[in-house]
Design a protein around this nucleic acid. Structure first.
Lengths: 155, 155
DNA sequence: CTACATCCTCAAGTAACTTGAGGTTCAAGC
DNA sequence: GCTTGAACCTCAAGTTACTTGAGGATGTAG
């Protein structure tokens, strides 16, 4: 129980201090205990909790979604199956994001490579970037396995 | 030049109409031409442009970053090398995100699997999710400031 | 020619923070 | 013991990137 102050917690979790206070205010992070001089004190459990929160936030889960996850994790009355289902949902979303992100990575990498190969120093607006990056997107907002074919720019 | 109206463009790019108008207002998308009745008309070039914008936005590039990319692409005076460098920067950011996202995916998948295996229906707060998900983070810190809103695929 | 979806503008609202002002508290050095 | 500078506190206001809503004009199918 390493008794951290807010700055240390911030450093360990890659969050900044006002954000931690904000999370406390909106009830995402439990209210921290206080030292004599009214300064917040944190434990290892808080490090874990905040790390989870940040991880999820960085990948686009909304505060409300994270809140429900955190609640599930901490509520002794909750059923594991319920938690599993929620996690499963998140997993589907994460995988969809992964697929799109990979497509973006391939597009940008191809652009950089083609620049290296052909347009070194030349006048560039005809670079293929727009063509490369803006080819047809996988139809819907892609929660359910967007597919990649050679014709839709995914490859 | 398929002469789309805003609703069609919205559908094709997975954006919604007010957002398109907003992008026009802030100068991210060129000012659309108008029909007789003052309604906006779009071309295939706009589909491309907006698709690029959305792709990048969905993965956490800020409006300003996207703006600079779009500007580079469209400015005849820009050098290809400059564009390449910018793209390279984006590539690094995208790859960092990919790594973290994969870690998140593995964690959640492991959690779901362990639920399936062991805690079926049981009382769940001791599920390993917190332990799994909040283990030490890889030191890459959020280069591209992704945020969440309802439209950016954050479901 | 009449519904009814789609479009327009403008204003206000929202999420998730960030920044700033003005004031305490703590730890180190003299 | 005293001071000084970093880190902390609260509260209020600002920012980004949209979203939602009101109130009205336009386009199109039957």
């Amino acid at each position: 129980m390493s008794n951290l102050k807010i700055g240390a917690l911030a450093k360990q979790t890659g969050t900044n201090a006002p954000t931690i206070r904000y999370y406390e205010e909106i009830g995402l992070l439990r209210s921290a205990g206080r030292q004599a001089g009214n300064q917040r004190v944190y434990s290892d459990a808080d490090v874990k909790s905040l790390t989870l929160i940040r991880r999820c936030r960085e990948f686009g889960f909304s505060i409300d979604q994270v809140r429900s996850l955190v609640a599930l994790v901490q509520d002794p009355a909750s059923s594991c199956l319920h938690a599993r289902d929620l996690a499963q949902e998140h997993l589907v979303a994460v995988r969809a994001k992964l697929a799109e992100l990979k497509a973006l990575e391939r597009s940008i990498a191809a652009f950089v490579a083609s620049c290296d190969a052909s347009c070194a120093g030349g006048p560039g607006p005809d670079c293929v970037i727009l063509d490369d990056l803006s080819k047809g997107r996988t139809q819907t907002r892609n929660t359910s396995g967007g597919r990649c074919s050679k014709t839709n720019g995914c490859s």
